[in-house]
């Protein structure tokens, strides 16, 4: 399982990257992240929402309530222009870290 600190550092770019692919809601986002990471990327489900609210406050994402197919209301999030720019910056940072790390002591 990935360390808590790394999960915390990566959650914002991961959410932005997920939402760059289209509107989504909290539960679906968690499921997709779990699936893509092979259940390595785990955190308490409830912890996602403070992050989403913080990102919304920063103007990176926006949300709206809408009815799902089941008739229940869900809050859907989508990425804003500032979020797309932030995602680009995150990608550059993570790519740089990855290239530095993979260049050091290659096995």
């Amino acid at each position: 399982m990935i360390r808590k600190e790394l999960v915390a550092a990566s959650v914002e770019p991961l959410i932005l990257a997920l939402l760059a692919g289209g509107e989504s809601y909290g539960y679906a986002m968690i499921q997709e992240l779990k699936a893509r990471s092979g259940d390595e990327l785990l955190w308490s489900d409830g912890m996602l929402y403070p992050v989403l609210h913080r990102m919304e406050g920063k103007g990176l994402i926006k949300s709206r309530w809408r009815e799902s197919e089941s008739g229940r209301k869900r809050k859907y999030y989508s990425v804003k222009e500032d979020g797309k720019r932030a995602l680009k910056a995150h990608r550059e940072e993570w790519t740089l870290i990855y290239s530095v790390l993979s260049g050091l002591n290659p096995i």
Binding site: G26, Y27, A28, D45, G46, R72, K73, K75
Partner: peptide, 10 residues
């Protein structure tokens, strides 16, 4: 409300 919606999904 949002947390409850998540709980119901789960």
């Amino acid at each position: 409300e949002e947390l409850e919606s998540h709980l119901r999904d789960a």
